[in-house]
């Protein structure tokens, strides 16, 4: 294992993040907090509680998950796309480094960034609403698993994309709508039966539900199913990344 290479890629990505502090940290945390303030205050004044939980507190896990999904995807996709765009990817391809080590460096850095952002939002939210975490261990498990899974997805998008526009398509046109419709701001049980069934085809429902369970012990779907679905998605992403490096798709001529 080329640990030095993993360390180099990870360190490089983290320092890039540090250089763009306003854009990388302040902006996403601020916009998530704005969601929290607007939705929590405006709608929370009309919906006082959901499943016995204050509405302001109820939406926090969903908002953290929304941030986690978008930031993991964007960070990882940009991380690997930029060397492709500038041409510096030649160095990665000619280095004594395996596909696993490259993925570990990029996905590890992207996941670290989004976990830090998620925790920052949690801390900020706790200043506004009484927040309790019933299962801290499972909260961390869901947080890490989701960050890694969506960083993997972002890595794949970064290799697939052949322009900055494509880099944005999946996060903006797929992930954000799925997150909004996946129970970030409401419980799936509040929907009519038909839409409840439709919603179950949205993979984000399982992530938000499991994550919310770790806070309040309430969930829209079984926690085991949530965990299984997240792990399954991670496995699919890993298989795709393995195929990319095996075939050299969009990397090697």
């Amino acid at each position: 294992m080329n640990i030095e290479a993993v360390r180099a890629i990870y360190g490089f990505e983290m320092s890039r993040w540090g250089r763009t502090l306003m854009q990388s940290i302040v902006s996403p945390v601020l916009s998530t907090c704005l969601y929290f303030i607007v939705f929590g205050s405006a709608i929370g004044s009309r919906i006082s509680q959901v499943d016995g939980i204050d509405y302001g507190a109820f939406i926090v896990p969903g908002l953290v998950m929304m941030l986690l999904l978008t930031q993991s995807t964007l960070n990882a996709s940009f991380g690997i796309y930029f060397p492709r765009f500038t041409g510096t990817i030649y160095e990665h391809l000619s280095a004594p480094v395996s596909a696993f080590e490259i993925v570990l460096g990029y996905v590890g850095a992207a996941a670290t960034k989004s976990v830090i952002l998620g925790l920052l939002v949690l801390v900020t939210a706790s200043l506004f609403v009484p927040l309790r975490i019933a299962h801290p261990f499972w909260m961390i498990v869901f947080l890490l698993l989701t960050a890694i899974t969506f960083s993997m997805l972002g890595f794949i998008i970064g290799i697939w994309a052949d322009g900055f526009e494509k880099l944005q398509i999946i996060p903006l046109l797929v992930i954000t709508p799925l997150t909004f419709l996946g129970g970030t701001f409401y419980s799936v049980k509040m929907l009519p039966p038909f839409w409840q069934t439709v919603t179950l085809f949205n993979p984000v429902v399982y992530l938000i539900s499991g994550f919310r369970w770790s806070f309040f012990e309430i969930s829209d779907v079984n926690v085991g199913v949530s965990l299984l679905m997240t792990s399954l998605f991670l496995a699919v992403c890993m298989a795709v990344a393995w195929w990319i490096f095996r075939t050299g798709y969009r990397l090697k001529a």
Partner: peptide, 17 residues
């Protein structure tokens, strides 16, 4: 382009193990 020569040469060294 946004990196420094010092950082990028050290990065290359690490990448090659």
């Amino acid at each position: 382009m946004f990196e420094t020569p010092w950082a990028t040469v050290n990065f290359s060294r690490g990448l090659f193990g």
